[in-house]
């Protein structure tokens, strides 16, 4: 236990909020939290769906949980059920084998909901394109609010995409 506490103290706080070097990012990240507070209440909950990715997009979404990005500290949490989610974060070209599961996940997510497609594959099918096995872009299967390019997009780009989706959301200011 002593070792753990010592290591925690030595590590200190890594969370960047905004990286020092990039002021534009600072504004965006602070903005993000404001937007979340304004629109969604206290927190934004996200359900991830890998609809057929090469798994590198998942690695970057997972990285959002590390201490540098500390997405939880911004009030954004990944949840285990679409029924608890405000937003679906969808990666990959949608494989035809995931088409039904993705539609069902979408239907299970309560309204009003947001969908963010992650990565070149989610945006336009990427290198896998459309075929007997791939439906291509996410918006070919469910409605998409924001699509984030990149292969894979960096964690910061994914955060910006989430911000964009939240700020485009029709105002729900009146909800408690």
């Amino acid at each position: 236990m002593y070792q753990i506490i010592k290591q925690i103290l030595k590590t200190g706080i890594k969370t960047e909020g905004p990286p020092q070097a990039d002021d534009a990012l600072r504004v965006e990240i602070q903005n993000l939290q404001e937007q979340i507070l304004r629109h969604v209440g206290r927190a934004l909950t996200i359900r991830c769906v890998d609809a057929g990715s090469c798994n590198a997009c998942e690695l970057e979404i997972q990285a959002l949980n590390n201490a540098y990005y500390n997405i939880g500290g911004l009030g954004i949490n990944f949840v285990a059920s679409p029924r608890h989610a405000d937003m679906l974060l969808v990666t990959g070209p949608v494989s035809r084998h995931m088409e039904i599961a993705l539609k069902r996940t979408y239907d299970a997510t309560p309204d009003p909901k947001l969908v963010v497609a992650v990565g070149d594959c989610g945006c336009n099918g990427g290198i896998f394109a459309e075929s007997y096995a791939s439906c291509g872009r996410v918006s070919n299967v469910i409605p998409v609010d924001v699509a984030i390019p990149g292969c894979p997009p960096t964690p910061t780009a994914i955060l910006q995409g989430i911000l964009t989706a939240v700020s485009r959301r029709p105002s729900t200011d009146t909800t408690p």
Partner: peptide, 24 residues
């Protein structure tokens, strides 16, 4: 579930183009 036709896709590429798909 994530079958997206990778092997068929390779057959539409040449040796140079295949490198990018191999990395994914």
């Amino acid at each position: 579930y994530t079958h997206k036709g990778v092997e068929k896709r390779f057959e539409s590429l040449n040796l140079e183009q295949g490198a990018k798909l191999a990395g994914r």
